[in-house]
Simulated assay, not measured.
Amino acid sequence: MDRIDIARLASFPIAASTADTAAPRASAPWGAPSEAPPAGRMDVVFIENFIGQTIIGIDSSELHVPQPVRMNLAIGVPALRACATDRIEDTINYAAVRAALHALLESHGVRLLEALAEAVARLLINDFGAHWVRVALAKPAKFDDVAAVGVQIERQRSDMPKPAAAQGGLADYASLGQGLIPN
């Protein structure tokens, strides 16, 4: 399935459930939801069938000439304020995401689709404020006898390490010596 199933995306649970503690379900087909985003109401902004050119792969034939990659993105954010305000500042700006994806494809330096998908997820969470993402990434022209090969990952904000700027803050250093000096 190459299209994000809007009907299923709209049916994500609204309240917290026991799904948080249950074992994850098996992966669904390409681009289809496999499970709900984190507990709580989540609006999903999506980009479907984004095509970009990049150098990626492990075969020597792939390391010198850009090849097409296709992405389907589902970007979960808490109930969008833009629904009420009608302001682009209150939602995910598709044009900004598209530009960032093109820049990432020019500079990523990874060889595996899995690593590139992780970089895309990190970009969406750290730079665009997503709380949950699904990244489906494919090489449509890898083999003559298959439509595409690829990977699909899901990440939550809590899965991502803190950005470097947030690490090593003053509070972190202050707690290092706590309790070492007697009163």
Rank of each mutant, 00 (worst) to 15 (best):
D2T: 11
D2K: 06
R3L: 05
R3P: 00
D5S: 12
D5Q: 00
I6S: 04
A7L: 09
L9P: 02
P13L: 01
I14Y: 02
A16H: 11
P24H: 04
P24M: 09
R25Q: 14
R25G: 14
A28T: 03
P37V: 00
P38S: 04
V45K: 00
V45I: 15
I47A: 06
F50S: 13
S60N: 11
S60Q: 07
S61N: 10
L63K: 14
H64P: 04
Q67M: 02
Q67E: 03
G76C: 12
V77C: 10
L80H: 07
R81I: 01
R81A: 15
A82H: 12
C83Q: 13
T85I: 12
R87V: 05
I88L: 15
E89M: 07
Y94R: 08
V97Q: 13
V97I: 00
R98S: 15
R98L: 08
L101H: 06
H102P: 11
A103V: 02
G109R: 00
L113I: 11
E114G: 15
A117E: 09
A117I: 06
V120W: 02
R122G: 07
R122I: 13
R122T: 14
A130T: 04
A130W: 05
W132A: 13
V133A: 01
V133M: 10
R134V: 11
V135A: 04
A136N: 07
A138E: 03
P140L: 03
K142L: 13
F143P: 09
D145R: 14
V146D: 03
V146I: 13
A148G: 09
V149R: 02
Q152C: 01
M160T: 00
P161V: 07
K162G: 02
P163A: 07
Q167M: 06
Q167G: 00
G169I: 03
L170P: 04
G179Q: 10
G179R: 11
I181H: 08
N183P: 07
